[in-house]
Amino acid sequence: MPKVTFREDRCKGCELCVSVCPRKIIVMSEGMNKKGFHYATITDQSKCLACAFCARMCPDAVIEVEK
């Protein structure tokens, strides 16, 4: 099963990953990271395709994808 890992402390909350996810399973958190941004996180890991679109669009290399 694909596994997506977000380094939440590195996220700047730009939402580019949210906009490109074909399964729409990335959401912005209600809480904030230590930099003060609402960070991106994944809701349902089991729906992930491991397409890595989110990781390729992330300007801060926050996301790692395994399959």
């Binding site: 694909p2 990781a55 290399a61 996301i63 790692e64 994808v65 395994e66």
Partner: peptide, 9 residues
């Protein structure tokens, strides 16, 4: 598990 995408070195 194989890495599909990781931070470049």
């Amino acid at each position: 598990m194989a890495k599909v995408f990781e931070r470049p070195k």
